[in-house]
Design a protein around this nucleic acid. Structure first.
Length: 330
DNA sequence: GACCAGGGTTAGA
DNA sequence: TCTAACCATGGT
């Protein structure tokens, strides 16, 4: 759990109710957060019921099932389902994890300023105002999710993740809900390629994931080291040197785990489909055109991508004015 | 049954 | 450095 000081949220803990209250920035939409979190019925690492998020956290050695809710503007409630942990550090860790997961510390003012006058990004930014990049704070989870999702549809990717979690992750049942924790690298120490193949991972993906698990279990790879490597470019180079991690995976992890706002998974199929749809094209835009489209958003590519992904959700996309956009090609 | 999916590696030019 | 073949499997 990241405990970097700059990510520590403003939060308070009420001894009487046992609830931690986390302040949220003005540009934060709980509704958009819920929409993203419920995009797949196959998701196994959290659930949403009646506008409340249920998730299993781990602080220290404690498993903490929590309920996140939005009792009103400007704040979230973090309720510890089994009662608050005795260790105040665990409460702080849980709050910090939640804040990082939901990207509460990011000042999005520059992004919205950039988007405001943009014919493509403007309508997305206003239509989905307050949407933040839902993260994958744990590096191993982020890498496994990215590798598993390479070149397959999202539905199957969720199925693969679920199998990984249900076979090797920790499980906790409380008040009728089943909570899962993503496995740690060490949990896969004795797992073989054949075993993962039986879960319908391809042989390559099985190798990649087990290799990454080994690297992380041995300490050769860690989120802390990547963040401390001096620059996102250095972190990217480290990731790219790992077998099975190409440009898309590296940038996906930079975007969702290391939280580089300029991460840019330009080869992403979902990004291509979103642009194709918003630009009313019959074909996906070429990479060079995507680069040109993104040029004005330099430094905020990750958020632009996330907002474009958002436009693919069934709730639809805001009307994009075609004026000022590149002409449709056939 | 073809084509696609939130790609990556490898061999060959 | 760039391109094409290949990987493998479920969804639609």
């Amino acid at each position: 759990m990241t405990t970097r000081q700059k990510d520590t949220p403003v939060f308070s803990f009420d001894e009487n109710t046992g609830i931690a209250q986390i302040e949220t920035p003005a540009a934060f939409s709980y509704a958009e957060t819920l929409l993203y979190l419920t995009r797949s019925p196959l998701e196994c690492l959290h659930s949403v019921e009646n506008g409340r998020i249920y998730k299993l956290l781990e602080a220290g050695k404690e498993l903490l099932p929590v309920e996140i809710s939005n009792p009103g503007p400007g704040r979230l409630h973090l309720r510890f389902m089994q009662g608050p942990p005795a260790d105040p550090d665990a409460i702080r860790e849980a709050a910090a994890y939640t804040a990082e997961w939901l990207d509460l510390a990011r000042d999005m003012t520059p992004f919205y300023a950039t988007a405001q006058s943009d014919p493509l990004l403007g309508p997305l930014a206003s239509g989905y105002y307050g949407l933040r990049i839902i993260g994958v704070p744990h590096l191993f989870e982020a890498l496994c999710w990215a590798i598993a999702g390479q070149q397959i549809n999202l539905t199957f990717a969720y199925t693969l993740k679920r199998r990984l979690v249900e076979n090797y992750g920790k499980k906790l049942v409380w008040e009728g809900r089943t909570y899962w924790l993503f496995p740690k690298p060490g949990d896969l120490a004795d797992v073989t390629v054949e075993e993962l193949r039986q879960l319908q991972f391809t042989g390559k993906k099985a190798e990649y994931i087990l290799h990454v698990a080994g690297l992380m279990d041995s300490g050769a790879l860690s989120k802390e080291a990547l963040l401390a490597s001096g620059s996102y470019e250095a972190a990217e180079r480290t990731l790219l040197a790992i077998r099975g991690i190409g440009p898309w995976t590296a940038h996906y992890v930079l975007m969702r785990c290391l939280r580089n706002p300029a991460a840019f998974p330009i080869g992403d199929a979902g990004l291509h489909n979103a642009l194709k749809q918003l630009l009313h094209r019959t074909q996906k835009p070429a990479l060079e055109e995507i680069r040109q489209l993104f040029a004005p958003w330099r430094g905020w590519e990750a958020y632009a991508v996330f907002y474009l992904w958002r436009s693919l959700l069934p709730e639809g996309s805001p009307a994009i004015q075609t004026a000022g956009l590149p002409d449709a090609r056939t």
